[in-house]
Nucleic acid binder design. Structure first.
Lengths: 171, 171
DNA sequence: TTAAAGGTTCATTTGAAATGAATATATTAA
DNA sequence: TTAATATATTCATTTCAAATGAACCTTTAA
């Protein structure tokens, strides 16, 4: 009864991208891989899947990277999990193909588990990517200042400010 | 996102025992193993666990077997699953020991998943073993007559009847 | 004393998930 | 046109929990 790391990482990628939305540069696979200590190669496949699902936009080449295709508050957790998680065969009898349970059709387990699973996903349907990334601390005070290791640094502002104060170098 | 076969089989054992309650002879491991095409050896371990959980009573020796320790309608599915299922580590960050997620404590995924899991089990807490075994067909008509492959045959009545009509052989 | 039952231990297999390595393709900037 | 940076693809390999199997021990009723 656990989600795959695949799903776990998928969510982290999305969160990273969500937190990168304000930045000028898009997030890159290498960046995220490093932030979470995962292999670039592996993470690439996850990103490709998310891209295939229409959640991410990827752009190749220098200056490329990843961007969310929809605003974070419209990306629903339940939907993501439904799509990244491969196996919802809660017990054997869910898999019509390989089912050998002799009670199939006689017992009410399947119905109960299906109902339970529905409730599970229902909860996740009430959560969006934006909710996940929102700072856990107090809402008042506005701007988030603190640094979160697994997310892009909120330095753009500072950098931009320092650029200005440094006398406007071109880029 | 699936339960282990271990849990699946655990439930089948319990169901078998529940359906055997009326019989004079207790259910046996060999019987259940054969009914479901599982190895005796493997099923024994499952039975021992259920026994350890106080759900089953086992008696050794000839004439021995398995019996539920509590009436079927008091055995709650959620409780069983909570105890037979080994791993509720929905994602990495649930496992304090091995967690490496750098967002730990910053993102709200854990809370959402915990909530979802609670709802899941909540549904199963509303189902008892008796519910699972109850015939799916109409409630009226009383006595179940049909034969269910994975459960003990409801022959006792018929057998007893035939015994009577055969003139009361001793046993 | 034998047959039928549960009980224990150890080794092995299996399969999905996870990972890694190598390489191809696209894009931008100098 | 070349170098650098980024995504994209393919194939092989590793890992680990779960599942299984085999052999043998213990208990009990007939």
């Amino acid at each position: 009864m656990r989600l795959t790391n695949w799903t776990d990482y998928s969510l982290r990628v999305l969160m990273y991208c969500a937190a990168s939305e304000q930045r000028e540069q898009p997030a890159t696979i290498g960046e995220i891989a490093e932030a979470h200590g995962i292999s670039r190669s592996h993470l690439t496949k996850i990103v490709m899947t998310l891209s295939g699902l229409g959640l991410l936009e990827t752009t190749r080449g220098r200056g490329g990277g990843l961007r969310l295709l929809k605003p974070a508050h419209t990306i629903v957790l339940g939907e993501v999990v439904r799509q990244t998680e491969s196996d919802f065969t809660l017990v054997e009898c869910f898999d019509a193909e390989h089912n050998t349970c002799r009670l199939d059709g006689h017992c009410r387990l399947k119905g109960a588990l299906r109902e339970a699973m529905d409730r599970y996903l229902e909860v996740l349907d009430g959560v969006t990517l934006a909710d996940l990334v929102a700072p856990a601390a107090s809402t008042r005070g506005g701007q988030r200042v603190h640094f979160v290791p697994g997310l892009p640094r909120p330095l753009d502002v500072a950098v931009r400010r320092s650029r200005v104060s440094a006398g406007g170098e071109s880029r």
